[in-house]
Design a protein around this nucleic acid. Structure first.
Lengths: 293, 293
DNA sequence: TTGTTCATCTCGTCG
DNA sequence: CGACGAGGTGAACAA
């Protein structure tokens, strides 16, 4: 029996079912009228209403209303669920530590409680990620510009690891920051941090190599403006597109933008029409739902 | 009847129920063995397994496994759900445009289908947000430093709106960037963008006011280093704490950190123990669940 | 619609 | 654990 369900159980009955479902490691749904309190990283209060509570065997808890993709309240995986009947009412509490967080759902009525035995794969294969974009570039560096040569990926710097590091045709170091979608100002700043870090590295190495140049004050500037041309580090933002503001910031810093999409996952076959071979009119039935908005 | 449920329905029966539930604007859960395909901003494929599909009347769709807070697959609100029986199997497709996205769930078995009539409030009152932190500062600006005076909130700049803008005791302009939790490098960059924008504004205004200073090249530097002291703009990052790397970047830019938490929502009463008055031993029952990790 | 930022972001990965 | 960045981020809000 992959699922057991109780309709309009008493609060006591609901508790017994929960207890049993916890033991079995089931995925639990509780639909009922409830109020919800949360306290932890922030604090929140949700007044009475019908909601769907989902309790997962990994400790995750979700409270869903009839709207939104995001739960109104939740608890992350790793939490511990407690159920009790208090004052005759079912109460579910989910707690975790570090950070200390508590979610409490108080039911006034339980309409339905289900416990489901979940099996099977949860490995999702996604394409179109930033990693895919990187593979695309490494496979054909000329997509960035003729003569570009990647020398490292995830190369570390004082500001963190850079997506792609390399040199251009003239031997000038180049930092690439990759984004799978249109970018705003923050991506430019991120690129800037990496470029500054590399420029800093190089100017430090240069002064160490060359005892003649003792110019400590001038050396600590991190901007491209006052770096000599030989010390220049290029920054290229690789993304499908860029906002106006980001473009301004990019220009201010003397960085560049290369428009590039993550590789398309080939033909648009969601199987919408032709996966099951027979696409003629069959006795298949259909039902539609347009959102009421 | 707030809930209707079908156990092990035929695929045809499941379709009828879905059709009816769509019409009623119900919150639908379907538990069964299925595969899931997504294509849109990215693309993904999920092999066979038992999952819980949730269809909301606002067009949201969620596919949940027994793990994680985040659904393995989903569709945002505003999507349109279609159900059909194809090749004898229930298939649910959810689509939306801009961006074009399609989610397809193909069931091999439907264990349970429920339709719930959801009513009641979904207004969540949250405390401890960045807005609360801002209110706290505006109520007592001395928390930043003696003599600090806020002059504007969400004041716009070329780099976007600043959380709080003001002047210090010496009349020097100050930009505050607020964060409700510990911050890393990106917050420093964000603050930097605003400070640069204000400094730019002021230097532009100064050259406009003063016809003597025609020094177009020197004026376009955005760093604090070469700005004269009278043109200086202070940047203060207000957050509970800050990472080491962020502290370095902050120092590089000559910015400051003020340690400040969002206001605590008073006593830690999640109602865990004493909300229902009687906290003596009653005949209340308990059940626990520790995550199996 | 697009742009920008906050979020109890969540999630992975790497020291 | 903490730090850092990606994400089909989602969601609110302003232009």
């Amino acid at each position: 029996m992959p699922v057991t369900t109780r309709h309009d159980p008493s609060h006591r009955e609901a508790l017994w079912e929960l207890e049993s479902a916890f033991d079995r490691g089931a995925l639990i749904t509780v639909f009922g009228a409830c109020s919800v309190e949360y306290r932890g990283r922030a604090a929140s209060s949700l007044g009475p209403g019908d909601r769907l509570l989902i309790l997962k065997p990994d400790g995750a808890a979700l409270v869903h209303t009839d709207e939104q993709r995001t739960p109104v309240n939740w608890q992350p995986p790793g939490s511990t669920h407690h159920a009790a009947v208090r004052d005759g009412r079912l109460r579910v509490r989910s707690e975790r530590s570090s950070p200390d967080e508590t979610l409490i759902v108080r039911f006034s009525t339980v309409h339905q409680l289900s416990a489901m035995a979940v099996t099977g794969g949860r490995d999702l294969a996604v394409t179109g990620s930033e990693a895919d974009l990187r593979r695309r570039i490494l496979a054909d560096p000329a997509l960035i510009e003729p003569g570009f040569e990647p020398t490292a990926i995830e190369r570390d710097s004082a500001a963190g690891p850079m997506d792609v590091f390399g040199v251009d045709a003239a031997g000038t170091p180049v930092v690439l920051e990759l984004k799978r979608r249109r970018v705003g100002p923050s991506a430019v700043s991120q690129l800037g941090r990496y470029v500054d870090a590399v420029a800093e590295e190089r100017s430090a190495a240069a002064t160490a190599d060359d005892p003649d140049s003792d110019d400590p004050d001038a050396a600590d500037s991190g901007t491209a403006a006052d770096a000599s041309d030989t010390d220049r580090v290029r920054g290229i933002l690789v993304a499908p597109s860029i906002t106006d503001r980001a473009a301004e910031l990019l220009a201010d810093r003397g960085f560049e933008h290369v428009a590039l999409d993550p590789p398309a996952p080939a033909g648009d076959d969601t199987g919408a029409d032709d996966t099951d071979a027979d696409d003629a009119d069959t006795d298949d039935v259909d039902a539609d739902d347009a959102p009421s908005s």
